[in-house]
Design a protein around this nucleic acid. Structure first.
Length: 371
DNA sequence: CATTCCCGCCATCTG
DNA sequence: CAGATGGCGGGAATG
């Protein structure tokens, strides 16, 4: 049926920009919006509205954030904001959990010990990755019978996030390709389509974790293949963490490179008026608590944009298409603040890099005099 | 062509 | 039972 063809009727380039809709960006914005004093509860509708995205996307964000302790479901439509300060503890817990499950592979039906799912002993589970840390996981392969209940939960983004993180926390290497991660988490399931789906989810997760600087995308030194590296260093493996700040992720899909997620649907028209949120930046960056706090370090922080730049950047396209465009255009001129041109954007990116390097090696950076 | 990952349908799960 | 959740995979951007 007549698909709402994306007909780029409007002369010129398509204004749609994938980056502006990334989960990573959305996550940053979400945090910018709520990570501040006084916030106690987060309403899904409110969030969706202010961030100008569909509810569905909020679920994605919230689910991974919940896995890291930043939020807790309070009631329907409502979450209790805990804060970034809860992250270290949550990670510590995940780590423990991971190790525990690892060597005794608890069997607990319907998760008792670590809420996790319930499994079925993967038959030929051969350690595919460095370790055999078989964090729970285990999903029956090509489905057969199953108790939809647990089965569904078993595949939740939240759980997957936890397991993904455990992979880093309980493993020697802190570098992981999503493909390997997917396979590991699937208990080496052969089913390629299953893996594909898993990888898709991992991309989602990786994006938000990246935006929070938990991990960073890199290319495996040898394989050249894309992988992710854990940045929230763990005591042991720490040791000078590599060469330090190899931040050259210039212009790829650098998450958080842009602000806001305005609605510019890919094909279907964007409905509801874009309600750009009015974040004032103020996202109290949690300082790197390097003091005492044992091993796990809260990932280097988010908000690359917090202070200096914080305003929403509406779709910068020159020409858009559909009707709704009007709205955006208007909004664009209203909020238009920065980054309308490459130069500014670059500057911003630069700023972010500076922040990252500063953070990762507290002191290593040199005040690049961009300006 | 391969990799990334947004989008939104629709199965499930609450309240 | 309506509304809330969120798995899932098609297929469009991007590399």
């Amino acid at each position: 049926m007549a698909l709402p063809s994306p007909s780029p009727s409007a002369s010129g380039s398509t204004a749609y920009c994938r980056k502006q809709k990334s989960l990573g960006l959305l996550c940053s914005n979400f945090l910018s919006l709520y990570n501040r004093d006084g916030i106690d509860t987060v309403g899904l509708d409110d969030a969706a509205g202010r961030l100008g995205v569909e509810r569905r996307r909020i679920y994605d964000i919230v689910n991974v954030l919940e896995s890291v302790g930043v939020l807790v479901r309070k009631a329907k439509n409502t979450y209790h904001w805990i804060g970034l300060g809860a992250i270290p503890k949550a990670l510590e817990q995940l780590k423990e959990e991971g190790f525990r499950n690892n060597d005794e592979q608890v069997d607990v039906k319907s998760g008792k010990v670590s809420d996790d799912e319930e499994d079925e002993r993967i038959p030929n589970h051969s350690a595919s990755l460095q370790d055999k840390l078989d964090l729970d996981s285990i999903h029956k392969t090509a489905g057969s019978s199953f108790k939809s209940g647990e089965n569904r939960k078993e595949k939740s983004l939240g759980l997957l996030t936890k397991n993904f993180i455990k992979l880093f926390l309980c493993t020697n290497s802190d570098m992981l390709s999503l493909d390997d991660a997917a396979k590991t988490l699937l208990g080496d399931a052969q089913n390629p389509s299953l893996t594909r789906t898993k990888v898709r989810r991992l991309y989602d997760i990786a994006n938000v974790l990246s935006s929070m600087n938990f991990i960073e995308k890199i290319h495996h030194p040898e394989t050249r293949k894309p992988a992710f590296r854990w940045l929230g260093k763990i005591s042991q493996t720490h040791s000078q963490t590599g060469p330090a700040t190899a931040h050259q992720e210039s212009k790829k899909r650098a998450f958080g490179t842009e602000l806001t997620n305005i609605c510019f649907k890919r094909s279907k028209l964007g409905d509801q008026e874009v309600k750009l949120f009015d974040l004032q930046g103020q996202c109290q960056p949690v300082k790197p608590n390097t003091n005492g706090s044992n091993s796990i370090q809260c990932p280097p922080h988010l908000f690359d944009h917090s202070d200096s730049v914080s305003l929403p950047k509406p779709c910068v396209g020159e020409s858009n298409k559909v009707n709704k465009t009007q709205d955006c255009e208007n909004l664009a001129s209203d909020y238009r603040p920065q980054y309308r041109n490459q130069a500014l954007r670059d500057l911003f990116v630069h700023y972010m890099d500076a922040w990252k390097s500063w953070y990762s090696e507290v002191a290593e950076m040199d005040p690049i005099g961009v300006i």
